[in-house]
Design a protein around this nucleic acid. Structure first.
Lengths: 153, 153
DNA sequence: TATGAAATCGACCGCCC
DNA sequence: GGGCGGTCGATTTCATA
């Protein structure tokens, strides 16, 4: 990936609806070669997809909760059950297996505290958990889907 | 927002490039009224924007780190300096002010551990921090930008 | 082999019903 | 909410360096 590809990515990460003409102008190319570059970025999987980002407040899920938890037991079966259960809960939008003192970290979006409690109950109903601790986001200071392009080869 | 709007949102959250015709068919509408609904969703800010999502591995930032930190001092000036510094670091893609024992939670993407150390150093060079603890994601089990639509009015 | 110009094709967006 | 038609941008072909 050369400089032009990275410029294209920078623009598309900000706004996937950027007209091809504008994209082409930004990288000093005419639309055809620029278009082919964009195609290649999709085909090679660098760009995974193109999505609409919604406002959590407008969808009535203004509260973000980070949940740290420790597994009830450390077996493959437990993990599978846990992942299956957590993936099926739409309020849980991110799941990470972590190093260190907590086993998993979840990012959860809910309307309010009561909404979080429902998710919590649904989770402990599905699997045994040794420890669950939740932290509420008071304020979102930054939230972007743009990945840094400084490290790409 | 009625059921059709939510169906449209569900599809656009998965794929913002969905052709209007397909969208219209999914909600049993002809393209014009469907298009008008989509416009309204943008204008009303329910849909904030449309972005390209990239593969972190392809961009050489396969490592996700969650950083919990406590402020060096609790003043408005400190917070402003911190937010300004952290926002300017492209590897820091999310910043939350938290309740509870940690003051802030950061989501950071880097190529490797050494890359994280650079971000860490850059951060402590900018502001005084009382406590910093980092957790590395070993595995991403779920990561979506789709918000749950169950709570929307 | 990669680019650019031009023609085609389809989606989008205004009109009116 | 639906249907029509113009306009615009996206995609393909072809010529070129």
């Amino acid at each position: 990936m050369d400089k032009k590809d990275l410029q294209i990515l920078a623009l598309l990460q900000k706004n996937a609806a950027t007209p091809l003409a504008e994209l082409a102008q930004a990288v000093n190319l005419s639309s055809t070669p620029c278009w082919r570059r964009v195609q290649k970025l999709y085909e090679s999987g660098v760009i995974q997809k193109q999505v609409a980002l919604c406002d959590p407040r407008k969808l009535n899920v203004p509260v973000t909760v980070f949940v740290s938890l420790r597994a009830g037991e450390h077996s493959d079966a437990w993990m599978k059950r846990f992942v299956r259960a957590a993936r099926d809960i739409p309020e849980i939008i991110e799941i990470y297996r972590m190093s260190g003192d907590v086993d998993y970290l979840l990012k959860v979006v809910v309307p309010d505290i009561a909404g979080y409690d429902k998710v919590y109950k649904r989770l402990i109903a599905a699997v045994d958990l040794q420890d669950v601790s939740s932290g509420f986001a008071m304020e979102v200071l930054k939230a972007t889907t743009e990945l840094p392009l400084d490290y790409a080869d």
